[in-house]
Computed example of a mutant assay.
Amino acid sequence: MSLPTIRRPAALIVSASLREARERRKIGLRRLADKLGVSPARLSGWELGTHIPHPPNVAHILGFLGISGAEYQRFMELAKHLHDDNLITGEDAQAFSLMWTYEQLAERVVEWAPFCLPDLLRTPQHFDRDPGADESPSCRELESLERTVRQQAMLNGPRRYLFLISEEAVRAASNEADAEEQIQRLRSAASLLHVTVRIVPTTANELSPPHAFTLFENRRTSIAVAFKNVHCTAYLTEKVLLDKYSDTVGALQRQASTEAAEADTLDGFTWGRAS
């Protein structure tokens, strides 16, 4: 069995953007490939992210499609990083869609939440109450759309999800205004066969990075890790970093299993354990 292909973040953004630009102009893939003088299979590979084009190829496609101005500059700036293992993105539609793209490529998604509950397990009221003072309405709308799509995917399967949540994060949630509804949401998620929720004792936090992160796995192999900052998201596919985060997940799972798997009770909440 072949190993999963690592999809570099900039290449995924560029490929999806090229496909969207072509479809927006209602040009068929075969017709564009013929005009560019490349095979349909090669152009399809560029659009799917399975093959990485050279920057001149990207410029050639953009020129034929009539892309100009700021959009062209954004494309070409990303094209400089097509072969980079890691990428820091800003707050635009392509950056938000990258999280969803990696999720679609993954068989299992692992979320580590050291200080607050993961977005996928949050109630809508939480985001309505704290939309983010520094975010523009368009960014909040994009985040809301991404979160809704990912939450629906989590509920419907078939992808597996593992949530590793620190005691500190759960206790913080129990003090929020919508605590009862939030706890019920966690119970519902933990009851799903393809969702596992583990509470990690506070003493184990020293084993982990201080930031929340999302690890994407395929065929038991890590393919990408993402973590958000205030104004950006970092996507990492460098093997040494993936191995580090994968080891961290394993350590947190062992700690949760050793100290909390049987008790499963925290602040009066009994945690279900999905298989």
Rank of each mutant, 00 (worst) to 15 (best):
A226K: 13
P201Y: 05
P114T: 00
T265P: 00
Y161V: 13
T196V: 11
S2E: 14
A224G: 01
R31G: 10
R185G: 05
P210D: 11
A59C: 14
S275R: 13
Q182F: 09
R185C: 06
Y161Q: 09
F96Y: 14
D264C: 14
P4N: 06
V14P: 06
F127M: 14
P131K: 14
L82A: 04
I67W: 04
V14G: 09
R187C: 06
Q152H: 13
A260V: 06
T270Q: 07
H211W: 04
T270I: 13
Q104A: 08
C232G: 15
L192K: 10
Y235P: 07
L3V: 07
L62G: 03
R140D: 00
N86L: 01
A79K: 05
L155T: 12
R129S: 09
E47F: 00
H54L: 09
S222M: 06
E262G: 08
R160A: 15
P158W: 02
T196E: 13
E77T: 15
G157N: 09
V58E: 02
A234T: 15
N86R: 04
P55F: 02
R25T: 14
E103F: 03
T237E: 04
D134N: 07
N57K: 11
P118D: 00
A93R: 06
I13Y: 01
C232W: 11
F163D: 12
D264R: 11
L266T: 12
R220W: 10
L3P: 04
W100R: 15
G132K: 03
L18N: 01
P201E: 00
T221N: 05
D85W: 12
P131H: 10
E77A: 11
A169C: 03
V225F: 01
A212V: 01
V249W: 10
A226Y: 02
R42Q: 14
F213H: 00
S15M: 08
P137F: 11
Q94W: 12
T233G: 06
L266I: 08
G157I: 07
T50W: 04
N156D: 15
E91N: 15
R150K: 08
H211L: 02
A11K: 13
R159F: 00
G45D: 11
W46I: 06
L242G: 10
S191K: 15
D247L: 12
L29R: 09
T50D: 02
D247N: 13
S208M: 06
G37K: 09
K244P: 03
K80W: 09
P114Q: 04
L142I: 03
A256N: 03
T214K: 13
R24E: 13
S166K: 04
D264I: 15
P124E: 06
L164V: 11
A95F: 03
G37R: 07
A204R: 05
K244F: 15
N175M: 12
L207R: 03
T258P: 08
V249S: 02
E167F: 04
A189Q: 09
I27H: 03
K26Q: 10
V109M: 03
L121F: 00
V58Q: 05
A263L: 12
L62S: 00
T233Y: 02
T214I: 08
Y235S: 01
Y102I: 09
L87Y: 03
I67C: 09
I67D: 10
R160P: 03
F163Y: 06
H51A: 15
F227H: 05
R185I: 08
A179K: 14
P114R: 01
A33E: 11
P131R: 10
D128N: 02
G69T: 02
